[in-house]
Amino acid sequence: MKPPLFDYVTPESVEEAVAARAAEEDSVLLAGGQSLLATLNFRIANPALLIDISRIAALKGIDVGAGEIIIRAMVRQREVELSDAVHGANPLLREVLQKVAHTVVRNRGTIAGSIAHADAAAELPAMLLATEGVVDVQGPGGTRVIEASDLFKFHLTTSLAGDEMITAVRIPNLAPNTGWSFKEFARRRGDYALAGICALVTLDDNGRCTKARLSACGIASTAVRLESAEAELAGSTLDENTIARAAKAARDCVTAADDSQASTAYRRHLVDTLTQRTVAVARDRALERRAA
């Protein structure tokens, strides 16, 4: 299990990286490499060129602003997880990141890399969907912004063009009166989840849900929003019956076929349970935040 031969470049600017990408169709960006290196070692991937973007100074650093968190493409997951500023702005991130693989992997892996990799079972794409974040993208023709809802097209496939790269991931700060929760069920600590649910619920002064955003990983060909479940919650006080109805609706978002770890029916069961549990936690946290 040794990597195949490839050319290797270390651009020092985004422009250089994009140019390298444009010049070699069969190229791939190397950031943290925690997924890429494994696929190289298995020789599942066999690219002609590796573009190591870790030397690009412009891709480093986190900015926590009044409205959003900007995480540039070379920021390691562990840095975001440990950042108190990030945690203060949106505590969902730490809760999600603590479930991503193991510390040793988060030390190298990047937020942008995981999102660009777009594994259907990975947690960070689901987090991006639930927070309604965006990615900043740069290509030979300039920059653009892609909303989370337009990003994930299939397992390991995004809407980025072949010569584009993510330069930053932007995640809105947690809105007022909003509670959050992420729960997943993985066979082992750190494994990709059989199912994972992100929940964000915003309550009004009467405890009524004004907005609910639910997303899931591991249950379809991409991370998905659970819109039918969100619709059940919106406008309600999030009592147990409402939550149960939403959870039941969430089951129908499961489209993954049976695999060796979980049948579709079992995944539906997991989604039901996890939806109930995350929404309940998010609701309680929203109530706490409102009270505080």
Partner: peptide, 13 residues
């Protein structure tokens, strides 16, 4: 005995 097998033994969905 996997979680899915427990699920099935409990009668499935």
């Amino acid at each position: 005995l996997t979680p899915d097998m427990i699920f099935q033994a409990l009668g499935g969905e």
